[in-house]
């Protein structure tokens, strides 16, 4: 009986090693995720693609969404989507306070589109905190513009309309 146990000892050790590796990987992924800031945690159904938003902006419909840039003020001043407003950086408390102040009086079914475009999507520190803030305030129609690389590459370079100034 002792011999059988000894024979399976290396297998058992290897299995335990594999298990510990899996646990460690899960731990590592959790460490990387940084809940609260990662844009990738915004649900897919809340995303809008640039070409879709261009159609809405350029359409003759009177009911346009409220478009808010929640990233860098310097980037906003260089170029932004026509009609959009700067609403503070979503990654900072002061920015979120500015955002809350801007939308506080609005009906909770107001369609709001948020965007940033400072950095590649997975690194954007601004859009998810701003999105979560609006959701927590009870807004039911919040979309986030999916910008894969940055606003320059995914909007300006494609010839989509822009406005300048702070």
């Amino acid at each position: 009986m002792q011999n059988v146990a000894d024979r399976f000892k290396p297998v058992r050790t290897f299995a335990l090693f594999l298990l510990s590796c899996l646990l460690s990987c899960a731990f590592a992924l959790a460490a990387r995720a940084q809940p609260g800031s990662a844009a990738s945690s915004i649900p897919t159904e809340a995303l809008i693609q640039p070409e879709e938003l261009v159609r809405i902006v350029q359409s003759g419909k009177s009911a346009k969404p409220l478009i808010l840039q929640v990233g860098s003020n310097v980037l906003y001043a260089q170029a932004h989507i026509p009609g959009c407003e700067y609403a503070g950086a979503g990654s900072t408390e002061s920015g979120r306070q500015q955002l809350r102040k801007r939308v506080d009086a609005l009906p909770r079914n107001q369609l709001i589109v948020l965007y940033c475009g400072c950095c590649p999507w997975s690194h954007c520190p601004n859009v998810n905190p701003a999105y979560q803030e609006l959701r927590a305030m009870g807004f039911t129609k919040v979309w986030v513009l999916y910008i894969a690389s940055n606003f320059g590459t995914d909007w300006v370079d494609k010839g989509y309309p822009i406005a300048k100034g702070g």
Partner: peptide
């Protein structure tokens, strides 16, 4: 400064 360098519209 960004405009001088053709627009710094991403970092």
């Amino acid at each position: 400064t960004g405009d001088l360098y053709g627009g710094i519209l991403g970092l």
